[in-house]
Simulated scan of single mutants.
Amino acid sequence: MSAVSQSRVPRLRGRERPPRVFICYRRDDTRHLVSGLAAGLASSMRGSRIFVDRGSIPIGAVVQPTIEEEIESSDVVLAVIGPGWLTITGPDGSRRLDDPRDYVHAEIAAALRRGKHVIPVLVDGASMPLQDELPPEIAELAGRQAKRLHDDGPEEFAEFGHQLTAAVRSFRRRQEEQRQHQRTSSRRRRLPGLVVIAITLCFGAGLGVAALVPGDSPDRPLTGSLPILGAPSVAIEVPEFSGSVPDLKRDKARPRPRPSTSTGSSAAGNTRPTPTTSTGTATGSTGGSAPPPSGEGPLEGTS
């Protein structure tokens, strides 16, 4: 087999990438018509890349990784099914399709895992296999809509190519819509979190400013702190005082009384009664003796 790939031609719809088609088939089953199918698709799908079997792999390249890369980059995978596709056996007598190392099994399983658009193509009167007739890894193939080719002529293959081109455009449009929906859903999921963060930051900033600036009440202490992002909080404290701000102003404006000094004689208006003796004469400059303490009488033996 040889790779069938068109030369560089103008791309479809301006800058749209040409379709990439991967053809999966079993040589012992449908080798006689796959080359004609690839040629018909290449002629109708201008600029497209048609990957056919090992003939499309460069000499010296590792086969399995190259096949997986081609499947990954393809837009559609065609699973060509002939009359013996399901029942062909290997040297040991077991069904080849049941072997995970079988290329048909591995290629279809890889395409299904990657979510590629796999289209069963029924040729030579083959019937669509049932789900329980397929290995579990490729059982999903039974639920795909198949394309039946009745004639091996180039006109039918070319018509099939036009259908594939329209299908690829539909696939790509659907994928773009899904990606757009995922991006929108992701933004919607992130929006509540961003709103909460914004509200939290604004609330925190408001608390910092409210703590720094005193309110309307004059009795509120002038203390507070201003939080700074990325650094410890900066505290600004003012010593507290009793009373309110107006009281503090009045207290500062009020003159303070001077302390008074006491002398031997009492000042006018601030006189105090001086202690007297039992005879009623005042003590002080007269030199009289002080009276005995309260409750004590005169000493005995004195006149």
Score class of each variant (00 low, 15 high):
Ala3Ser: 09
Ser7Cys: 09
Ser7Met: 07
Pro10Asn: 09
Leu12Ala: 10
Glu16Asp: 13
Arg20Ile: 10
Val21Ser: 02
Tyr25Ser: 08
Arg26Ala: 10
Asp29Tyr: 08
His32Glu: 11
Leu37Gln: 03
Ala39Thr: 10
Gly40Arg: 02
Met45His: 07
Phe51Ala: 07
Val52Trp: 00
Thr66Gly: 01
Thr66Val: 03
Glu69Ala: 15
Val76Trp: 02
Val77Lys: 01
Leu78Lys: 01
Thr89Cys: 13
Pro91Ser: 15
Asp92Phe: 06
Arg95Val: 15
Asp99Leu: 06
Asp99Gly: 07
Glu107Gln: 06
Ile108Asp: 07
Ile108Asn: 00
Ala110Leu: 11
Arg114Thr: 05
Arg114Lys: 15
Arg114Ser: 14
Leu122Ser: 06
Pro129Phe: 06
Asp132Pro: 00
Glu137Gly: 04
Ile138Asp: 04
Ala142His: 11
Glu155Ile: 13
Glu159Ala: 15
Phe160Thr: 02
Ala167Ile: 07
Arg172His: 11
Arg179Ala: 15
Ser185Asp: 10
Ser185Ile: 00
Pro192Val: 11
Gly193Cys: 04
Cys202Arg: 11
Cys202Ser: 14
Phe203Ile: 13
Phe203Asn: 04
Pro214Gln: 06
Gly215Val: 03
Pro227Thr: 03
Leu229Lys: 02
Pro232Trp: 01
Ser233His: 01
Ser233Glu: 14
Val234Pro: 00
Pro239Gln: 08
Arg250Phe: 05
Lys252His: 11
Ser260Glu: 14
Ser262Val: 15
Gly264Thr: 10
Ser265Met: 07
Asn270Gln: 10
Thr274Lys: 06
Thr276Met: 04
Ser278Ala: 15
Ala282Tyr: 05
Ala282Pro: 03
Thr283Arg: 12
Thr286Glu: 05
Ala290Cys: 08
Pro291Glu: 03
Pro293Leu: 09
Gly295Cys: 05
Gly295Lys: 04
